[in-house]
Amino acid sequence: MSDWTDERPTRTPGVSAKDEILARVRSALAVPRRDEVTDAEDVPRAYQRADDKQEVSTDRGKVRDVLVQRLEDYTAVVHRTTADGAAAVIAEALGDAARVIVPPELPEAWTSSVTADVSQDDGTAGPRELDDIDAVLTGCHTAIALTGTLVLRADGIGGRRVITLVPDHHVVVVEEDQVVLGVPKAIERMAEDPRAAWTMVSGPSATSDIELSRVEGVHGPRRLDIVFIEPEPDPEAEAEAAVKKASARKPTAKRSSTNPTQEKTA
């Protein structure tokens, strides 16, 4: 019935696959397009990059609040604390976990109040062993406020990738200086060590594969706790903020253009 045929693509004898593909591409691109060729410097970078005003000058307290709110949007549990309170809060976040694994360079202070059996990863445990571990406690490299993302580098603080994957409960300690507002700043930090093994985590494992309704808890850790170590509140600044807050009730003060919670396009 059909009078069309589909022929096998031609391969040139004696030419390697690489040379042949490159020659095909060169020959295809020899047909010029309507517009000028785009070089790296032609890419319009008008979007908010790492050095954008919003990224560099947004009030840190606001940035932290956004991070917390967006993490919580993903049903992660956020524990806000200070350096002094960290140990106790970490112990609390680990809950009733009996066996906990930590990367080798994790600050010892972080586990000082943990009553569970804490083992330091020596790089040998495989997934079967890790499956018997209740929780993993790691640090973080970067946290992205606007997307609620934790960026883990596979190192002595972020841990081997497998230890943050197999145990069902992941507790991540985030420190204030790791928090950035947007994705570009995070990529800039990651670009200092691009060849590391990186994992970006935004909330617990999830799927939307059934009727596009989001279900949490598939293969990755089903529980995600964040212990967020924030600076000690400065009583003077507190007082100042309280005054600001009071005046903010007047409509004129609401026009803060750098408020990242108001990203909406006009």
Binding site: Y74, R161, T199, M200, S202, G203
Partner: peptide
Amino acid sequence: RMNPYTTLFTGVTEG
């Protein structure tokens, strides 16, 4: 805002 997991790896990472 971001998918739950993004993995970035380069060649082989020892260990």
